[in-house]
């Protein structure tokens, strides 16, 4: 008798538990307002991207086309996978002394893992992580670019006005 009772109670409990699951999925079916997915390219304007999001390494330039990079190559040394190559050149200053300045800041986005170690290593805050993220290209050579803009130069340190 007990076995029969157990047999039927097991069927009953199983049906109740299964119906609970069906109630859950059914309730989500009836509440389309709970849908979480978004239509990506359409919602580009309203897309929320946190300001710290690491999309690529970027070198900010000011309105005079000047940047902060002193070509010290600390970022190149900090990079674990050789995505950074600093090419510097020597220019002659008006007073005759020679100075090493940045020629090209070559960045390979294809091999970059966005670990932020270069930004962390930079002593003069010349590079930052940017939020941009749509970088798909058909040829990986297009993922290598110069971060410094053509004709840009090092930001002059503010000299104290002579009294």
């Amino acid at each position: 008798m007990n076995a029969v009772k157990r047999y039927f109670s097991s069927i009953f409990n199983a049906i109740v538990a299964l119906l609970k699951g069906m109630r859950l999925t059914g309730s989500y079916l009836l509440h389309p307002s709970k849908i979480l997915t978004q239509q990506y390219p359409e919602n580009r304007e309203t897309l929320y991207i946190p300001e710290r999001f690491k999309g690529r390494v970027y070198m900010p330039h000011d309105e005079n086309n000047e940047h902060n990079c002193t070509a010290c190559t600390l970022c190149q040394l900090a990079c674990p996978n050789g995505s950074i190559q600093i090419i510097s050149k020597n220019i002659e200053l008006p007073d005759g002394t020679k100075k090493k300045v940045l020629d090209r800041w070559v960045y390979n986005l294809g091999s970059c893992t966005l670990c932020q170690l270069c930004v962390d290593a930079c002593p003069s805050d010349a590079i930052v992580m940017d939020n941009a993220f749509e970088f798909s290209v058909y040829n990986k050579s297009k993922l290598i670019f110069d971060l410094n803009r053509p004709g840009s130069k090092l930001k002059e340190k503010k000299t104290e006005p002579q009294v």
Binding site: N13, A17, K20, G21
Partner: peptide, 8 residues
């Protein structure tokens, strides 16, 4: 409801 209690 969905998994833990499900008899299957």
């Amino acid at each position: 409801e969905l998994l833990t209690g499900n008899p299957i």
